[in-house]
């Protein structure tokens, strides 16, 4: 058979073995917990989905930059009423990057007999943990 479509390509492919979270669900912890919660969960999920190194770095980098921007804006120019919404916007920006990089890989991964696992527990833990961490850093260290 000379048909190139019928040469095996899957045998060398790496396939996720750990059940992923639905990347769309990461918006909740990102919104309530802030950019660090969103990027840590996005990073962990990206590893489950076997994302490339550069995409994982992009997620981590976006999280760091979004957190730095949130901290800098809060500590300098923002009036108090806008502070909490900027945290949420920074988180949602991180989620946008996570979702854009993970949607296809996630939808492929759930076709090999694996269902997504619930993000509710880890999501609440990350929201509270990283939310407090960001708050403590900004209000304890910077302000």
């Amino acid at each position: 058979m000379t048909d190139e479509l019928f040469t095996p390509t899957i045998k060398d492919a790496k396939v996720p073995t750990r059940p992923p979270w639905n990347p769309d669900s990461i918006i909740y912890p990102a919104f309530f917990g802030g950019p660090l919660a969103g990027s840590v969960l996005g990073f962990l999920n990206g590893r489950k989905l076997l994302l490339s190194r550069s995409h994982l770095l992009l997620i981590a980098g976006t999280g760091t930059v979004a957190f730095a921007a949130r901290a800098a804006l809060t500590a300098t120019v923002l009036p108090s009423y806008a502070r909490s919404i900027v945290a949420a916007i920074a988180g949602v920006v991180v989620w946008l990057v996570v979702a854009a990089l993970q949607r296809k890989a996630f939808r492929a991964a759930i076709q090999n007999g694996r269902d997504a696992v619930s993000l509710v527990g880890p999501g609440i833990a990350a929201s509270i943990g990283f939310g407090v961490l960001e708050f403590a850093f900004i209000y304890g260290v910077l302000l």
Partner: peptide, 12 residues
């Protein structure tokens, strides 16, 4: 085709 999708080889 479905197996290729599950392996994230969408072009093939």
């Amino acid at each position: 085709a479905a197996a290729c999708m599950a392996a994230n080889q969408l072009g093939k």
